[in-house]
């Protein structure tokens, strides 16, 4: 079979896989985006004693392979089957999609929290003081001053994190979720035609490219008042490389 025949015959499967990959990535990123602002506030403002469990969680999530986290949830839940059944949670953990989603959401929460914390810390103290001075309450200050600016600072890094999550979602194929990678392996095991991998690579690159464009558009919308111009570097302000 030539590469064209492969794609004409198997495109419905790949499309199916593409939808699954997008679903998994965006649901995971979305759940993490709901949880991470609160955690980032804790990381930025609370005392180190209250932060300890959060730091442990973030360090664990960043220091272990996602594959291991996925196995810990998907296979590991089997060890507690009787308890989970009693609580009615077993139907959730039995489904590989749910486990993959949970693993990705937990993982992405850790990364997004750290990124947002960086954004919150990057908001100039004077802005917060100004907001307080004109009588904004703490919550109002957060909502109108701190978070809008923090998100603007964190936006590119958040985009990178979502791309990393999209790439990591290919791991779900290992626990039999039929995303792009899962479909590709399925087709390969049937046809032994290598070109299916190249088609999968093209799909992943297209998703990434489209996402990058959309994210960039959203960034321009987020900061309409900031003109996109390259800032001249002077000797007084050396470029700072952010540590990933």
């Amino acid at each position: 079979m030539n590469p064209i025949e492969v794609i004409t015959e198997y495109w419905p499967r790949l499309l199916d896989g593409t939808i699954m990959t997008i679903k998994l990535t965006f649901l995971g990123a979305f759940i993490a985006a709901l949880v991470s602002p609160g955690l980032a506030l804790v990381r930025a403002y609370s005392n180190s004693f209250a932060q300890a469990p959060l730091r442990l969680y973030i360090s664990f999530m960043r220091g272990t392979p996602i594959l291991a986290q996925l196995f810990l949830i998907y296979y590991g839940s089997g060890q507690f089957r009787p308890i989970l059944q009693e609580w009615g949670l077993w139907t959730f953990f039995r489904d590989p999609f749910n486990c993959a989603l949970l693993a990705f959401a937990l993982n992405s929460t850790a990364y997004q929290t750290e990124i947002l914390r960086g954004g919150i810390m990057g908001v100039a103290q004077g802005e917060v003081e100004a907001a307080r001075a004109i009588g904004m309450s703490r919550i109002k200050t957060l909502r109108r001053v701190v978070f809008p600016h923090a998100y603007r600072i964190a936006w590119p890094a958040l985009g990178n994190e979502i791309i990393l999550l999209m790439k990591a979602s290919a791991l779900a194929s290992v626990v039999t979720v039929f995303d792009i990678m899962g479909r590709t392996r399925q087709v390969f095991s049937r046809t032994f035609d290598f070109s299916i991998y190249l088609w999968a690579a093209i799909i992943y690159l297209c998703i990434t490219a489209m996402f990058v464009i959309l994210w960039r558009q959203a960034e321009l919308r987020l900061s309409p008042h900031i003109e996109p111009r390259p800032r001249p570097r002077t000797a007084m302000q050396p470029a700072k490389e952010p540590r990933a």
Binding site: S173, M181, F188, A201, A209
Partner: peptide, 21 residues
């Protein structure tokens, strides 16, 4: 650009199966 856009597991399979072929 291409390598950073691909999932690592896909690269691994491409190398493993492709180089094998």
């Amino acid at each position: 650009t291409v390598m950073r856009g691909l999932p690592e597991i896909l690269t691994l399979f491409v190398v493993y199966n492709g180089a094998g072929l």
